[in-house]
């Protein structure tokens, strides 16, 4: 029996951007967008019109439909960290990446302890089953 409600995922529509790290640092993201920095040269931008990266003329910007996401409360994050994560969960606003319940996932942690849990669409049902 899970300690709290398991997350419910839905497919996300966004943009995947591969560009020079300094150009990504300085990019003016559209208002209302949510930027997940996967690595210094790789970003996933959710909820925006096609973003531009003025600092890198060779930036690759392409639609990204391969992630599913679920908003999880601080209580759910604590439950996931306690039961499904082997590594040390960072605190504060940041992106934590690694296996959750053995499935490659990303946790976009917010300041209030809540988070956006991201997983590849192909592994979405597997993660739902394991967290449920």
């Amino acid at each position: 029996m899970p300690a709290c409600e398991p997350p419910r995922f839905e497919g996300l529509v966004g943009w995947r951007i591969i560009a020079d790290p300094s150009a990504l640092d300085a990019a003016p993201w559209p208002a209302g967008s949510h930027v997940v920095r996967i690595s210094p040269d790789d970003a996933f931008v959710i909820g925006a019109a096609e973003p531009g990266v003025p600092g890198d003329e060779h930036a690759i910007v392409t639609p990204e439909l391969g992630f599913a996401g679920a908003a999880v409360s601080a209580e759910q994050v604590a439950d996931i960290a306690l039961h499904h994560i082997e590594w040390q969960m960072p605190t504060g606003p940041c992106v934590a990446q690694g296996q959750i319940a053995g499935v490659p996932s990303k946790l976009v942690l917010h300041a209030d302890g809540s988070a956006l849990l991201l997983v590849a669409c192909a592994a979405r049902h597997e993660l739902e089953d394991r967290l449920g």
Partner: peptide
């Protein structure tokens, strides 16, 4: 270097 310390299975 990006994510921190993780088990080698990852």
């Amino acid at each position: 270097p990006n994510c921190g310390s993780r088990p080698f299975e990852e």
